[in-house]
Structures are given as C-alpha cells and as structure tokens.
C-alpha cells in the first residue's frame, strides 16, 4: 500500500482517536477554566463588567489561524516556551483548541446564568436562602445553557482546522498511525491530493462523531 488509505481501518481509527482525544481534552480543560469565570462574573456586579463581557464575546470570534500562529510562535523551539518541546504534538493542539473553545463556553454559560429570571433569585432569597443557595438555584436553572455552551465549545474545537494544522503539522507515521493528524487536517490533505471522495467520507465521519457526542451529552443532561 503506497499511501495511507481510508480503506485501512487502522488509519481511520487512529485519526478519529487523535481528533477525539485532542478536542475532548481541550473542552474538558477549557470547561474547568471557563465555568468558574462565567459564574464569578455572572453572580457579581462590578465596574467594567460590560467590558469583560464584551472581551469574552469577542473571543468567540477569534480566528483559529491566528490562535495557531500565536501558539506556534510561543511553543517553537526558538520561542519563549521552546524548552517544553511541544511544537507539532497533540499537546500543542490541545492548547490551541483550549484557547479557541474557552471564550465560547464562558460566553454562552455567562449569558445563560445572567438570563435566569430575576424572580427566581428573589424567590430563593425570599424563602431564606443564603448566597450559596441562591447560586445553586441559579445554576440549576441555567444548566441547559451551560451544557449548550460546552457543546458549542466542542463543536468549535473538533471542526476547526486552521490552528491544528499550524501547531500540529498534520503528521502521520508511515505505518498509518496518526500523531497529529485529525479528521479535519486529513480532509485538507485528501482535498490537496484530489481525493475528493475520501475527503467527503471523512467529512461524514466527522459529522457523525459530532452528532454522537451531542447525543450522549444531551442524554446525560437529561434533556
């Protein structure tokens, strides 16, 4: 076999595994980072809150190639974090996807926390709840919005190609196992080689995966 082929199950399995590992890890990490920020901002009133919200919302539209370029420059062997030797690794891809997903998760979670009806909070206070109780009630009300935010972050991470191509390098070994090749970067490679059918099949696999993850999360979320 002269080239990795989509018909080779090891090759397909391995790029799917890299895609899922990288994007799920990135989303977990950025969720752990984003939700505290979203709740902290959402539950308090302070000067500059609108500015912070605007910054977060702007981050949602941050171009992935720019994130990729910045992460590459930071991690490059001659860059400030070069000694970590992370360039062209899955870890580098996780980092750039974290940067991309975090504003989405923060932004959507924040807006869902803030859109919990004021009456709900007042009622919680009214029946003698402490600050913590009120926060808990609000979180419970906002949970679907928060889950949506996490899913949106996952969608952004697994479907983006700009940054993972730059920081990951689209690398697969000669035996067909992927190091940093994801479904999206494999699609760009197959398109470049004129193998449109293969690229389409990969696209369908990607869609099916996103659907699957959404389904699982929705089921877990009890919706």
């Amino acid at each position: 076999m002269p080239f990795e082929s989509i018909a080779d199950p090891t090759y397909l399995r391995s790029i799917v595994r890299v895609s899922l590992t990288v994007s799920l890890t990135a989303v977990l990490l950025s969720t752990a980072l984003s939700l505290p920020i979203a709740f902290a901002v959402g539950f308090s009133e302070f000067r500059g809150k609108r500015l912070i919200t605007a910054v977060i919302n702007t981050g949602m539209g941050f171009p992935s190639v720019v994130v990729g370029l910045l992460v590459l420059m930071a991690l490059s062997s001659s860059g400030p974090f070069g000694s970590l030797e992370l360039v062209y690794t899955p870890e580098a891809m996780i980092l750039s996807q974290c940067v991309l997903a975090a504003p989405v998760i923060t932004g959507v979670a924040l807006s869902s926390v803030e859109s919990v009806d004021e009456a709900v909070r007042d009622a919680a206070y009214g029946v003698g709840g402490t600050r913590a109780d009120v926060a808990l009630i609000t979180l419970k009300e906002a949970r679907f919005g928060v889950v949506t935010g996490v899913l949106a972050g996952f969608g952004r991470a697994i479907s983006e190609v700009g940054s993972v191509l730059i920081v990951g390098g689209n690398i697969a070994y000669a035996d067909g196992t992927s190091k940093t090749r994801t479904i999206t970067t494999a699609i760009t490679l197959e398109t470049r080689r004129g193998e449109f059918e293969t690229a389409l099949v990969l696209g369908a696999v990607l869609l099916a995966l996103v659907l699957l993850v959404n389904g699982v999360v929705m089921r877990l979320g009890g919706r």
Partner: peptide, 17 residues
C-alpha cells in the same frame, strides 16, 4: 511513507513527517 516505513523497520524509530 515507503521510505519511512523502511527506515522504521530497520532502525525501530518512527519518522514524523
């Protein structure tokens, strides 16, 4: 892929191209 597979077979080291 051909060359790198041959290299890996001989030396046991994968090549990240």
């Amino acid at each position: 892929d051909e060359v790198n597979a041959a290299f890996q077979e001989r030396f046991g080291t994968p090549v990240a191209a």
